[in-house]
């Protein structure tokens, strides 16, 4: 979202030179290139800290809902394609490696290698987005989307059974129930809600336009029926029926991977910019700060994914 700002060190500004410094990239208010480099690096680390905190908000959301709706996560994660997710993890790690190598090449002044490594990094990033697109497209077609758009198709349910995860025969039917409960694109008063406030006003949503008074009903008091299923010596919390609020998982999935994908896109922009500058031969042992800082950013993007992958795909 802010790749331009992710590059704190200042390239030269013509009017600021009083003394002819050796390094053409030394800004007027720094005394030495070393001071400038260290400042840039410290600034970048602070920026990365803010990025981590941005994601940590979503990790908190994840933790809160995983704790309050464990059965939803247990049930829903198997709709994700572990193979594609795994490939994407490898792709991203490889591109991170290429990025690290690029920094090394810049430090050693190996211009050709630098350009190749940066190109490989870019390729990795685009591949990641391509695979992510395929995953999103599948989810879109299956109707397994965030709460407001959650409406699984019959094929999606069949697909689940075909993957061999369907422990209970009635799962598919149950999911249809859950989807129809949320499928109207608006709030639907649940049965417990009606019992609490028999005189609640009519819920009103007209094509997403909220009408003056509320349509919100209290949620059910707790997770629905659960039983312990023993499998392979491990105790698994396995709900008997599909949890009603399955969409919570997909909301969190799309929020987390979506925000991450935005960061990948920003990173690709930054890497393209560094690549363009490297083709002009602007980096070398004396000045490679942008390559270094963009590299740090790219590693952060990678690390976030390394946390996302097991949390979303590999729940057991």
């Amino acid at each position: 979202m802010s790749d331009a700002e992710a590059q704190p060190p200042q390239p030269p500004t013509p009017h600021m030179h009083e003394d002819p410094h050796e390094n053409a990239y030394l800004a007027h208010h720094f005394d030495t290139p070393q001071q400038q480099f260290e400042s840039g690096k410290l600034g970048m680390w602070m920026f990365l800290a803010t990025e981590v905190l941005l994601f940590s908000g979503l990790f908190c959301v994840y933790a809160v809902y995983r704790a309050s709706h464990p059965e939803v996560f247990e049930w829903a994660h198997r709709f994700l394609n572990v193979t594609l997710g795994g490939i994407n993890t490898m792709v991203l790690i490889t591109s991170s490696l290429a990025m690290a190598w690029a920094v090394r090449a810049a430090q050693l002044g190996q211009q050709r290698l630098l350009a190749i490594c940066l190109s490989l990094t870019l390729l990795g990033g685009f591949s990641f987005l391509g695979i992510k697109y395929i995953e999103y497209k599948n989810k879109w077609e299956e109707g397994l989307l965030w709460a407001g758009k959650y409406k699984p198709t019959a094929e999606a349910l069949e697909h689940l059974n075909a993957t061999g995860h369907g422990e209970a025969a009635e799962l598919g039917v149950a999911t249809t129930d859950a989807s129809s409960a949320a499928g109207h694109g608006g709030a639907v008063a649940s049965a417990p809600a009606a019992a609490v406030t028999a005189s609640a006003p009519a819920p009103v949503v007209i094509d997403g336009v909220k009408v003056e008074h509320s349509q919100i009903a209290p949620a059910p008091p707790g997770p629905q029926g659960m039983r312990l299923v023993e499998r392979a010596g491990l105790l698994h919390l396995m709900p008997e029926r599909a949890p009603r609020e399955l969409w919570i998982f997909f909301s969190i999935y799309f929020l987390m991977t979506g925000l991450h994908a935005l960061h990948v896109i920003a990173g690709l922009g930054a890497i393209s910019w560094v690549l363009a500058r490297s083709l002009k031969g602007q980096f070398g042992p004396a000045y490679y700060t942008p390559v270094d800082l963009v590299g740090l950013y790219w590693h952060l993007v990678d690390v976030v994914w390394i946390f996302l992958f097991p949390l979303l795909y590999l729940i057991h």
């Binding site: 709706h69 965030w146 709460a147 407001g148 758009k149 919100i216 209290p218 949620a219 609020e245 909301s251």
Partner: peptide, 13 residues
């Protein structure tokens, strides 16, 4: 998008 994280209509908190 109505993601339902904060909205009680979708079981949010």
């Amino acid at each position: 998008l109505q993601v339902g994280i904060f909205s009680p209509a979708y079981g949010g908190d």
